[in-house]
Nucleic acid binder design. Sequence first.
DNA 1: AGTGTAGGCCAACACGTGTTGACCCTTGCG
DNA 2: CGCAAGGGTCAACACGTGTTGGCCTACACT
Lengths: 192, 192
Amino acid sequence: MTESSSSPQPRRSDTTRNAILAAARERFAADGYERATIRAIAKDARIDPSMVMRYYGNKEGLFAAAVSVDLELPDLTALPRQDAGPALVTHFLRMWEDNDVLTALLRVGATNEAGAERMQGIFRDQVLPVTRAVCPDPEQVPTRAALVATQLLGLALTRYVLRLPAAVALHPREVVAWLGPAVQRYLTAPSP
Amino acid sequence: MTESSSSPQPRRSDTTRNAILAAARERFAADGYERATIRAIAKDARIDPSMVMRYYGNKEGLFAAAVSVDLELPDLTALPRQDAGPALVTHFLRMWEDNDVLTALLRVGATNEAGAERMQGIFRDQVLPVTRAVCPDPEQVPTRAALVATQLLGLALTRYVLRLPAAVALHPREVVAWLGPAVQRYLTAPSP
DNA sequence: AGTGTAGGCCAACACGTGTTGACCCTTGCG
DNA sequence: CGCAAGGGTCAACACGTGTTGGCCTACACT
C-alpha cells in the first residue's frame, strides 16, 4: 500500500483501476488499438464499461494511462565499452519477455498515428540519451541510435508480434550472441 | 458459361477492378486493416461500396486480392558470396520505397492474425529459399533467415511505419553501408 | 431491331462501437 | 442513526461498419 508517495490517500477504487489497466494492457497487446474494445476490457476486469469512461475519460485516455513505458535502460558507461551491445540486447530481451506493454505499444504504433508518436517520444527520451553515453561523435548519435532501434525493434516485431516460427525458436542466448555484436557495431564501430 | 480462366477476354470492368485494388492498397498501407473502411476505399475508387463486395466477396477477400506480394528476390548465387548482404539490403530498400503493398502488409500483419500468417508464408516461400542458396549448413538456414528478417523488417518498421525521424533521414547509401555487412554476417559468418 | 447480361447505384439492414445519463448500493463520517 | 459521496450497474443513444437485395442503365450479340 503506497500512500504518501504521490497520491495522498489510497482510494477504495484502486483495485478496480488497476484491474482495468491490467486488462487494457493485455488486450491492447493482443489485439491492437481498434480491435481492443472497451467492452472486452471491461469484461476482463469484471466491471461495467461505463467505469472505464468514468476513470479514464475515453478510449484514448485509457490507452495513455495503460501504456506508459520506462525501458529502464542500464547505464552503459558503467561497463567496458565493447560490452554495450550484448548488454543492450540482453536487457531488451528480458524487458520484452515479461512486459505486455511493449508489445501493446508496438502493435498500436504500427496502426495508430498517436501510437507511432509515442514510440518516437520513447526513442527520443530514452534511447537517444543512452546512445549518447556510448557513442564518441555526438553528431552521429541519432544515426547510430536509429540503427540500433532498427535491429532491436525488428527482433521484437518478428518474435513477439508476427511470431515468425524461426524467430520465436531462437534461444535468448542465441539472440544475444548474434545480435549483440551487430548492435555493438552500430554503437561504436567507425562509420563505413 | 464464360471464357476460360487462363487468358480471358479483358472485361469491361477491369479498370474499375484495378481502381479498387489500387485504392485498397493505398488505404491498407496508410491505415491498417480495421481503419481502412470499404466505404473509404470505394470513395477513392469513385465507385459504390457494394461493387467491392460484388467483385471481392468481402473485406477479407479484398485484402487477399489487393495484397499479393512477390519480393522478386535476386538469385544470390549469381554474385560473389560476400556481396549477398549488401545486395539483399539494396533490393529490399528499393522494393519498399515504391511499393505500398509491403507497408500495407506489415501494418496489417502487426494487428491482424491473418496478416501475420501471410507474412509467415512469404518468409517461408520466398526468404527461406534464397537464404538456402547462400548458407552452407542447411540446418542453420531457418535461424539465419530469421536473423536477416529481424534486421530488414526492423528497418522497414522504423523507416516506413513508425517513421522515426532518424531512421527516415538515413540516405539509402548509408542504409546499405551499415546494414549490408550485418545481413552478410547473419548469412555467412560462422555461428558465434 | 430486341433482348439478355454485366456494370453500376441506392437504400436499407443488422450489428458492434464509444459514450452518456439516470439510477442503485455500499461506505464512512457527523 | 442519518446522509452525503463515491463506487458500481443498466439501458440507451448516435454513429459507423460490413454486407445485402432491388433496381436502373448501357452495352453486345443475334
